[in-house]
Design a protein around this nucleic acid. Structure first.
Length: 402
DNA sequence: AATAGACACAACCGCGAAATA
DNA sequence: TTATTTCGCGGTTGTGTCTAT
């Protein structure tokens, strides 16, 4: 274990200088790097290659510890670093990888060429903070579902448990042996299911492997509304409710905001969540928005709909996903909540309110907006729900499910 | 214009694993 | 085999910028 130099900071131009007792007794500089320091480091690496970071100071006179040199090189000076904000594709990949392997920044960054672990970590921490404050789930619902399917063995993970790529370049594919979706098993001891038969596994009609469109649908947790309802009896309806599936939308509420047509459900917000090849033509799709495994694996039923939940449950710092993810967690990171409400948002709020019955919305859909969430955040959530719930023409008898 | 809060980014720190003496 | 050094990772903090109030 290296013994860090005792630190007695003193101010110097461009950063503090500290006593370095460990290696040579020189004074170590801290704080921002200067162009001259960068030049020294770059020159050293050009001559000797990466590594031997503690030798940098000996050989160049640079008053930086080896650790600082390594960090500066890795995060700022090495070639092929990509600059600028993350693309939607990169953001989505980060979400997927993080959902699978957690805070393994170095492993995650290995899958994003030109991006550093520090960069990704900063991105994630900012995102985490924002979503916690807004009371939102950590992952978009489809990512949660993707991870749950991976855990259930229905999807090949994009990385293995160690974060090594398995099929990064290819889109997620259903396991060839698992040619159907099954509803995740309900928690066996949940009171909501005491007297309800477990739902039958849901199956797509037809062989999904030979149906490109169904295969695409399988990659993203979209289920055709008709297929969902056809596969669900009363018990399954309860189960679907418990999963957090949104209520069916009456035909009378099919209008979309003026900037969105039914044939184009993929606006900028949608683009942040869905990869291009995962969006399906047409609008008659319904997203299953909850990953119950992620809920009951944590022994936290607070995310279950009120009335089904056995109790309010206590929430801890890490409960955001399990608490709120099951109902309305579709608030995307690329969209910064505006403090003021743009006119388009106000319109969206009205329209979404109309879809769900105005004030009842709060009682019916999300249990309630968390206290920490701002009105604008909540409005954005509602607008996102519209994206996720494009209008579906339904037979009249299906409206009774509401 | 001043202020506060949010955010992005850079850098530091502690720790543990791997490598080396 | 043990002690020491080096390296890398993840968590945390500090700072500058932007935006809303």
């Amino acid at each position: 274990m290296a013994v860090e130099a005792p630190q007695q900071p003193e101010q110097a131009a461009g950063g503090s200088v500290e006593q370095g007792a460990a290696a040579g007794g020189g004074r170590l500089k801290k704080g921002p790097w200067t162009p001259d320091e960068d030049q020294l480091l770059v020159e050293h690496v050009r001559r000797h290659g990466e590594g031997s970071w503690n030798a940098v100071r000996r050989e160049t006179g640079l008053l930086r510890c080896g650790k600082s040199c390594r960090l500066r090189w890795a995060n700022h000076l090495r070639p092929n670093l990509k600059r600028g904000p993350f693309s939607p594709e990169e953001e989505r990949l980060i979400l997927r990888l993080h959902a699978l392997i957690g805070n393994k920044w170095a492993r995650i960054s290995a899958h994003l060429p030109g991006r550093t672990d520090n960069e990704i970590k900063n991105y994630w921490n900012t995102r985490l903070k924002r979503r916690k404050r807004a009371g939102l789930a950590l992952y978009p619902p489809d990512v949660e579902r993707e991870v749950a399917l991976v855990r259930a063995g229905k999807l090949r993970p994009i990385v293995d448990a160690d974060g090594n790529a398995s099929s990064l370049q290819a889109p997620l594919l259903l396991d060839a042996a698992a040619d159907q979706f099954a509803w995740p098993a309900a928690p066996p001891f949940h009171p909501a299911f005491n007297n309800v038969a477990p739902p039958q596994p849901f199956q797509f009609t037809g062989n999904i492997s030979h149906n490109p469109q169904a295969l695409l649908a399988a990659q993203v947790p979209y289920l055709h509304h008709d297929e969902v309802s056809a596969g669900l009896g009363h018990a399954n309806k309860l189960y679907a409710d418990a999963l957090g599936m949104p209520p069916l939308v009456p035909p009378s509420a099919q209008e979309l905001p003026s900037n969105q047509s039914p044939a184009d459900a993929g606006g900028p917000l949608e683009m942040l969540v869905l990869e291009q090849d995962q969006r399906l033509p047409g609008a008659a799709l319904l997203r299953v928005t909850s990953m119950p495994e992620l809920v009951y694996n944590e022994n936290d039923y607070s995310a279950w709909p009120s009335g089904l939940s056995g109790g309010s449950g206590s929430r801890s710092e890490g409960d955001v996903t399990s608490h709120y993810g099951g109902k309305c967690d579709c608030f995307f990171d690329g969209v910064k909540p505006a403090k003021g409400m743009p006119a388009s948002l106000a319109v969206a709020e009205e329209e979404v309110s109309g879809l769900f019955g105005g004030e009842e919305l709060v009682a019916v859909w999300p249990d309630k907006p968390p206290e920490s969430i701002t009105k604008d955040d909540f409005n954005l959530q509602m607008m996102e729900m519209q994206h996720l719930m494009p209008p579906v023409p339904l037979p009249a008898d299906e409206h009774g499910l509401n």
